[in-house]
Design a protein around this nucleic acid. Structure first.
Length: 967
DNA sequence: CTAGGGGTAGAA
DNA sequence: TTCTACCCCTAG
């Protein structure tokens, strides 16, 4: 057989499957995408209908469910004669990616719904269905053989094989109520199409279907060749063999480009042989044949996909094996063949399957992510994916883990993860076929199944490195309805149970996309998550748990404690505490909110523990909802119900206001910690440098330390030991404090230091005796006046020694003697008091000293250096000094640079004597140009602590008080 | 440098 | 809240 012909033949099952899957709205678009990814290169001349179906799905996806609604007049319609592909291409061509990503404003202009509706109605019969019909009707040349092999032999054509109108919808109609037929078709889903067009039709349950397994298991793979041969012999070239290459691309584009980008996947031509399009002709293929094809194909697929059958279907959370080789594992259980699915009726009643899907979002392309695989897969798709084995009961357990990768472009929490079926096949797709009755494929489960028991565990794991799903507890159960709800046009009568169907916005999609969220009890793996996420998560878990039930109230309490613990661990500053408290508060608020929402309106909500993500928590209505991306956060809300424009993070994840706030706090605290750490490190770094600094600087550090000690009431190490001690010693408690907090502290310290200086002044100059003691600390500090006097002398000496050096550093001056050398006044009245508990940073010193030198030293001044965290960068220091440097009283006020905000002087009430002098002076020098200056001189010691400005202001006040003294 | 206006902060 | 001292700014 020609290899190319073989390839083409082997492609057919894929086309059938994709077409069939695409025909069902329940199949998430991402699943289709993944399937396409998995699909080998298809001859471009095949599968036109498939592509058309995919394009239709993309259109529906982009524009939402048609619902038969009409559209606005101004919209741009499409000619019904055009193909879906063309329309999609047209739309995509004219719609920017950004529009596709965002709220699809551009899409509004298109009036696609009528077109889609029309196309839906006009879709030709599925190739798969045709194939089955041909077999059942005996049209197929190998009908008899195929019947037997496929199991269709057990049914008669008269059973009403649902071969119908060519419309895929026909599949949704149950063909026959025959139990026998069901047995034939049903075990693997042939019991009549139970697929629902809209996911809300009740499917008939057919309990009689287990016998089919046997027939299936007896099939052998010999059919493959037969199948292929059949193709060659009987399949005529179909009309839709066209433009293979382009079409093949389009096929992917339908899935891709509609959401993100179109990945170039050159599909090599596979010869020129024209094969019959599956849609155009019935392809009688037995189950076995189909299976063989699939198997063969799979066997030759990239990296050799292997279908694995996992025995224990119940282990929904069983870790999907790490298949480092990145193969597609599918173990066929016993005689189950995947090909069977193709012929099988989707209406599997008792399919018991456990599916564990591990998804990795590590897509290098902007492709659609597989999602909602489980929840959205209709019976058909499920059948395709997995062969039902022998499950009698519809109970299904599925564990779907989602591995989020940083590289993903569609950072979107999704429901399930479809098997990662991209080309690299790095992901494992594990399909556990259950032999036990209570494991059924949720994927196969009809949304309207009578026994809706389905368990789905969907885990999201953001661990990049982990491609395999960790075993997770089964946490949630999805009812068929919920599964259906994952599809956009979900509609149903049964409320979701313990499932969360989330709709999230994806950057690649315009419609809120349904997703299955993790079950409420699902513990998110935090190991690889940042602290931010951890904080966020636990912060969110509490309210959520609290909102659930009493048993989970404890969780809240515990988590609240945990929150507190974390708070205490993470931060020590009051600022941090404040935010931690805020987080607690927001947690409580969220709790209350959820509680209120639980009791409001929705019984289903309440019964479901407020986990129903189908309804807005604000208005309790459905629609396109924003789902908080935080795991376990049940908040689902309309964008309009937010009250503010929704925002998304870099990954286009939405966070509810509660989580967003909590997240912001976490990030803030995180950032603060980083700042603190950086400062520490910088401090250490600079301290190392300080050890090699001139002695003056070290001395100065000692001075600072001395004042620091004095502030804290400790014995001044400067007095006891002037030689030891470094900045590390005074680095201290505040090292952990955040910058803002430090500022506050420094502010206080600054003022205190000022007070200290003011207290020290009279002790030195003793000429300011009328200055009252203004601080409580006065009593304390005065107790050490004698000591301070000694210290001050020493400090003054040190300062005098330091000044020239600093001046040099700060102003590029030669190390000339300080111009004020010998001016004791400047020193006596100057407490160069770096009050900070950390060492003074050199940059600050330079600035301060520069200013000091610029100012006439005749006037005492105080430069208070406040360095939040000790030595820090110049920028930081400049900022700090700007904020906290203090110009002491008497300092010349007319600074041009820097404009240093100063702390206010301590208020010094005017004495009567001062007022009298002032009055006299005003009268005496009323005509002088510089009368205030002269008055000040005139006042002598009485006005010693006043400035000309003080005089002016005081005079003004006196004039206000009694206009009489006005001169 | 002063005058004048306005503002702020702390104390009463 | 008011008073007072202090601070800042601008114009001259």
């Amino acid at each position: 057989m020609d290899e190319d012909a073989s390839n083409r033949a082997s492609s057919l099952p894929w086309i059938w499957v994709i077409e069939a899957l695409a025909s069902f709205k329940q199949v998430d678009i991402s699943v289709l995408h993944d399937l396409i990814e998995l699909t080998p290169e298809l001859p471009d001349d095949l599968g036109k209908n498939m592509r058309e179906m995919l394009a239709l799905r993309c259109l529906e996806y982009l524009f939402g469910p048609t619902n038969g609604t009409t559209t606005l007049d101004s919209k741009v319609g499409f000619d019904f004669s055009k193909s879906c592909e063309d329309v999609l291409q047209c739309i995509l061509h004219e719609t920017s990616l950004s529009d596709l990503k965002m709220a699809r404003p551009e899409l509004v202009k298109w009036d696609v719904h009528p077109f889609v509706t029309h196309k839906r109605a006009c879709m030709p019969k599925l190739a798969l269905q045709q194939l089955k019909d041909s077999i059942l009707e005996g049209i197929h040349p190998y009908a008899d053989s195929l019947k037997e092999r496929s199991g269709l032999a057990f049914t008669s054509a008269g059973d009403g094989i649902p071969v119908n109108n060519g419309n895929h919808n026909a599949l949704t109609k149950r063909v026959s109520g025959s139990c026998f037929y069901t047995q034939l078709m049903g075990a693997k889903g042939n019991s009549g199409p139970r697929i629902l067009e809209n996911g809300n039709q009740l499917l008939e349950k057919d309990p009689c279907n287990r016998n089919l397994l046997l027939s299936k298991r007896e099939r052998n793979g010999s059919a493959t060749e037969s199948m292929v041969g059949d193709f060659h012999e009987n399949q005529n070239i179909l009309n839709d063999c066209d433009d293979l290459h382009i079409s093949a691309k389009r096929q992917k584009q339908c899935a891709y480009s509609a959401f993100q980008s179109i990945e170039e996947n050159p599909v090599p031509l596979h010869g020129t042989e024209m094969l019959e399009d599956s849609s155009a002709r019935v392809m009688p293929v037995t189950e076995r044949e189909g299976c063989g094809l699939i198997k063969d194909h799979i066997g030759t697929l990239k990296e050799g996909m292997v279908l694995e059958d996992v025995q224990d279907e119940h282990t929904a959370s069983v870790r999907c094996g790490h298949n480092s080789d990145g193969t597609f594992h599918h173990n066929e259980s016993e005689t189950h063949t995947t090909a069977t699915m193709m012929l099988q009726d989707p209406s599997t009643d008792d399919t018991c399957q456990n599916i564990s899907v591990n998804k990795d979002k590590d897509y290098s392309e902007h492709s659609i992510e597989p999602r909602s695989l489980i929840g959205s897969l209709p019976p058909y798709s499920a059948t395709v994916m997995v062969q039902d084995t022998s499950g009698d009961e519809p109970c299904q357990k599925i564990s779907v883990d989602e591995v989020k990768d940083d590289s993903e472009h569609c950072a979107e929490p999704r429901t399930s993860s479809g098997p990662r079926l991209n080309k690299t096949l790095e992901d494992d797709f594990h399909h556990n076929q259950s032999e036990t009755p209570d494991s059924s494929t949720m994927m196969l489960q009809d949304p309207s199944a009578d026994e809706p028991c389905q368990n789905i565990s969907v885990n999201k794991d953001k661990d990049d490195s982990e491609h395999c799903v960790e075993p997770r507890p089964f946490t949630g159960s999805l009812s068929p309805y919920c599964a259906a709800a994952m599809v956009q046009d979900m509609s149903g009568d049964e409320p979701c149970q313990n499932n969360s169907v989330d709709e999230v916005k994806d950057d690649s999609e315009h419609c809120a996309e349904p997703r299955i969220s993790s079950g409420p009890l699902l513990n998110k793996t935090l190991d690889n998550e940042s602290q931010r996420n951890r904080d966020h998560d636990f912060q969110l878990k509490a309210p959520y748990a609290a909102s659930l039930d009493g048993s989970q109230q404890k969780i809240i309490a515990n988590e609240a404690e945990e929150v507190m613990d974390r708070c205490c661990e993470a931060e020590t500053s009051s600022d941090s505490d404040e935010y931690h408290n805020d987080r607690i508060d927001v947690s409580k608020k969220k709790h209350e909110f959820l509680r209120s929402q639980c009791t409001y309106g929705h019984d289903s909500l309440a019964s479901a523990g407020c986990t129903d993500h189908s309804f807005c928590m604000r208005c309790n209505e459905g629609g396109q909802l924003l789902v908080c991306n935080t795991s376990n956060c049940p908040v689902v809300v309309h964008e309009n119900c937010l009250g503010f424009p929704s925002r998304f993070d870099n990954n286009e994840n939405f966070y509810c206001p509660f989580c967003a706030y909590s997240l912001a706090i976490s990030e803030y605290l995180e950032a603060k910690k980083k700042v603190s750490l950086a400062k520490k490190e910088l401090s250490k770094f600079t301290h190392m440098g300080l050890k090699h600094q001139p002695k003056e600087l070290i001395d100065r550090v000692h001075i600072e330390k001395h004042f620091l000690s004095r502030q804290s009431g400790n014995e001044d190490p400067l007095v006891r030991s002037h030689d030891h001690g470094h900045l590390e010693e005074i680095e201290g408690d505040q090292a952990d404090h955040g910058g803002e907090h430090v500022n506050e502290v420094n502010d206080l310290q600054c003022r205190r230091s000022m007070d200290d200086m003011q207290q020290a002044e009279p002790s030195e100059s003793c000429d300011n005796v009328n200055s009252p003691l203004r601080e409580e600390e006065a009593a304390v500090t005065t107790g050490t006046l004698n000591e301070l006097t000694k210290e001050k002398k020493l400090e003054e000496k040190v300062i005098q020694e330091c000044l020239p050096l600093r001046a040099l550093k700060g102003h590029n001056q030669e190390p000339a003697d300080h111009e004020d050398d010998g001016d004791n006044l400047s020193c006596e009245n100057t407490d160069f008091t770096p009050v900070n508990q950390r060492q003074v940073e050199e940059g600050i010193q330079e600035e301060v000293l520069g200013q000091r030198i610029a100012d006439p030293p005749q006037e005492p001044f105080c430069a208070l250096n406040i360095d939040a965290e000790g030595t820090s960068g110049d920028e930081i220091n400049k900022s700090i000094i700007h904020d906290y440097s203090i110009r002491f009283r008497r300092q010349e006020r007319h600074y041009t640079y820097p404009a240093i905000p100063q702390l206010r002087r301590k208020k010094v009430p005017w004495t009567a004597e001062e007022e009298e002098i002032l009055k006299d002076g005003v009268q005496k020098f009323s005509n002088a140009n510089d009368r205030w200056k002269k008055i000040l001189e005139f006042g002598g010691d009485v006005l010693k602590d006043r400035t000309t400005i003080d005089l002016k202001d005081k005079w003004r006040n006196m004039c206000k008080r009694s206009p009489k003294p006005k001169s």
